[in-house]
Simulated assay, not measured.
Amino acid sequence: MSKITFDSIHTQTKQKQLTEMMHQSARVCHEINNPNPELTHCSICQSTNISFHVEKFGFQLDKCIDCGQIFCNPMPSHEQLNSYYNGPMKTFENQFFADSFENRIPIFSHRIKIIHNYVKQGLLLDIGSAIGIFIEALQRSNTALSIHCCEPSGDACTRLKQRFPKIHLYNKWLQELSFKEKYHAITLWDTIEHIEDIDAFTQKIFSLLKPGGYWFFSTPNTNSFEWQIAGKDHVQLLPPGHINLFNPNSIDILMQRHGFEVVEMQTPNGTLDVSYIDKLTQSSNKYDKQLGGFLRTNLQDKNFKQKFAQLLSTTTTAGNVFVIARKPNNE
């Protein structure tokens, strides 16, 4: 698998301007009335054991103590989200996707191999296609799948049509569409964290799949190494864009509640975590405590302990060195 680092997929322009653009977009959203009530329970596990987590860009994020889900509370309204996804922030995002287009292609290489292991041909619906990096990677793989795309951003759809003029494209939210087709596979890359009504969305996905069809998706993992170190400073705490943040436990609960069987969960691209945390720890020593806490907690897990021991051995950072030396042949 290709080495994927934080700087290779997040352009310097993005890193410098992201906070400013988020504040600008959030101000516009806050000018729109939000009638949604504050939730008293977790929408994933239904627990009432929730507490304030952090405020970002004027939006409150709460956390479920039982399943670990982090979510906007109250959720932004559909009008606020529509403004966000058709405003300057989305155009800015589409541009840094374009600027890092080739560097992002390898992210999908591993995923496409897995998809082809399960679904070699038939109809595939990609939801939240953005400017089509996954679509490009699929086409380069010589896939036999027929591809449909669903994307609410007008700017992204313009770019998609320019790059893929023959693509079957829906410029709407998934929930607004009535489909005649049933799909062999549905893909959703770093999009589920953007969805406000997660139950209705998951039900829609289930209804669109053929019996035996597969849903492939990715999303930030808030139980990951990088999240446990970065904590409330994590760069992906981005409401009203990211409003539902998952972990393997909350994903499993959601899938079971809606009738899905979880075939497998993976957390690839560990180089991305390491490069991001390297940037944070180089910038400040405030993360040293979290780093130590991560190791202390995870060393109680036998599998982690074994893999960590292997890592120490393969990087020659274990406490005992075994040396084999050779004297060269004299001429």
Score class of each variant (00 low, 15 high):
residue 49 N to M: 02
residue 49 N to H: 08
residue 51 S to V: 07
residue 51 S to G: 01
residue 53 H to V: 04
residue 54 V to L: 04
residue 56 K to S: 07
residue 56 K to M: 01
residue 57 F to P: 04
residue 57 F to N: 01
residue 57 F to D: 06
residue 58 G to D: 02
residue 59 F to A: 01
residue 60 Q to D: 09
residue 62 D to C: 00
residue 63 K to N: 06
residue 66 D to F: 02
residue 67 C to K: 01
residue 68 G to R: 03
residue 69 Q to D: 10
residue 69 Q to A: 11
residue 69 Q to C: 12
residue 70 I to Y: 04
residue 70 I to C: 07
residue 71 F to E: 04
residue 71 F to N: 02
residue 71 F to L: 08
residue 71 F to M: 14
residue 71 F to K: 04
residue 72 C to I: 13
residue 72 C to R: 05
residue 72 C to V: 10
residue 75 M to Q: 15
residue 75 M to T: 14
residue 76 P to N: 08
residue 76 P to G: 14
residue 76 P to W: 05
residue 78 H to N: 12
residue 79 E to A: 03
residue 79 E to I: 01
residue 79 E to S: 10
residue 79 E to Q: 09
residue 79 E to K: 02
residue 80 Q to L: 04
residue 80 Q to H: 04
residue 82 N to S: 13
residue 83 S to D: 04
residue 86 N to V: 11
residue 87 G to L: 12
residue 88 P to T: 14
residue 89 M to W: 15
residue 89 M to Y: 13
residue 89 M to V: 12
residue 90 K to P: 05
residue 91 T to A: 15
residue 91 T to G: 10
residue 91 T to E: 14
residue 92 F to V: 10
residue 92 F to E: 14
residue 92 F to S: 06
residue 94 N to H: 14
residue 94 N to S: 13
residue 94 N to E: 13
residue 95 Q to G: 03
residue 95 Q to H: 11
residue 96 F to H: 13
residue 98 A to V: 09
residue 98 A to D: 03
